[in-house]
Design a protein around this nucleic acid. Structure first.
Lengths: 223, 223
DNA sequence: GTCTATACTGTGATAGAC
DNA sequence: GTCTATCACAGTATAGAC
């Protein structure tokens, strides 16, 4: 692995675990056992590292978020499960770059380009969540007015965006699987009350999948 | 006004508008036209300023949040409006110290005491929102299971906590009234789908109050 | 209480040898 | 490409005069 790439990987790791603000270029170099000068040979500075990390993030998440807009998820059975997987993937990609969310205001303040990109991603999130909600609501009998739907999507977008912050604040933990599955559960159950008759079945589906997912995880760890 | 108090006021102002991370003790002293040495005579440093500002905040918001736990809001007519006012006050107090929310992770990482206090406040928020939801739901016919209620309150707590972050990210704006009223609307409409028959009336109430509030604001400005 | 002057620290960044 | 050495600077903090 080239030093340049190792710098990116190490920076990402440190930013996520120690916080972007408290991680200095010296810390990164020390952890990698290279000299600060070497780091500065590959990158102009912290700014460039963050910018490149964000570009990686934008490419990855951007792709995932545009997928459901073109091809809606299957409308037959197992739809809840499909959506579960999808949201899991989205949150997983976000989790890999969670330092952005932990220090959002500061980063967006310093890097104009990142701010624009982040706002684009936010709109994509909205669009993806809108598509999901609409597909789910179309099948049900409920009359969710357009205005209500927009409110719901807004709400889900906010939850999706600040879920990691909330979890960290509430539980001090940094466990990927549990945090993400809980996020998915939280997001999907937000839709439930709009589903009318199918509401209870939907809740049941969500909770059984949630249980199974967490069992799978712990089961896997035991191997 | 004593210099010591002026330091607190000026710091708060700068933290809120320029960001806590980018505001230095030197900035504060410069804006106030006093010397850095003078500032350090009154406060050991930035840490102490932030700690004291947080104490102010905790006292103020803590009081507001415990109020509805002891005395539930009137159960007769105008309940939506009462809740509106209440949430407005809560958000207003939060807004005054919004720098905490913009830089949350960083601040809680640096100041252990603030973290504990902030988590206490979060639990108070949950409790207050829980009380509000319960009073509202009690009167309606809907059968919101306890589990659903907890999910809803969780959701509202998250929205309440990160509303300013969301608004800033989405609109780049920093306007108190509009931001707060929209936050209240967002919070209250989250309850609506659980209200069964009264759902539509509730929506209508919310929106009419929202419109009136904003009209009042702009009207007042014209004077 | 308030000032000026100064010292200390950590971080960002570069030059030049290997 | 990588290193050592060093600089520049901002932010924090203190000493001592007024």
């Amino acid at each position: 692995m080239k030093t340049r790439d190792r710098i990116l990987v190490t920076s990402l790791e440190l930013f996520n675990t120690e916080g972007e603000a408290t991680t200095t270029t010296l810390d990164i170099a020390n952890v990698m056992d290279i000299s600060p000068g070497n780091l500065y040979y590959h990158f102009k500075g912290k700014e460039q590292i963050i910018t490149e990390l964000f570009e990686q993030y934008e490419t990855a998440l951007g792709g995932t978020l545009t997928a459901p807009l073109e091809q809606p998820l299957s409308e037959s059975r197992g739809q809840v499960e499909d959506n579960w997987y999808y949201l899991y993937v989205v949150l997983e990609e976000m989790f890999q770059y969670r330092f952005l969310y932990y220090n959002l205001d500061n980063i967006l303040q310093r890097y104009e380009g990142v701010r624009k990109g982040f706002q684009r991603l936010l709109q994509l999130k909205r669009a993806a969540l809108y598509a999901i909600c609409q597909t789910l609501l179309e099948q049900s009998v409920i009359s969710a007015r357009e205005q209500q739907l927009v409110g719901l999507v807004d709400n889900m977008t906010l939850t999706l965006t600040f879920w990691f912050n909330y979890e960290k604040l509430l539980h001090d933990r940094d466990q990927q699987q549990v945090t993400i599955h809980q996020g998915v559960l939280q997001l999907l159950t937000m839709i439930a009350p709009y589903l009318g008759d199918e509401q209870l079945a939907f809740y049941r589906d969500c909770e059984s999948i949630y249980k199974r997912m967490l069992d799978d995880e712990t089961g896997r760890e035991h191997c």
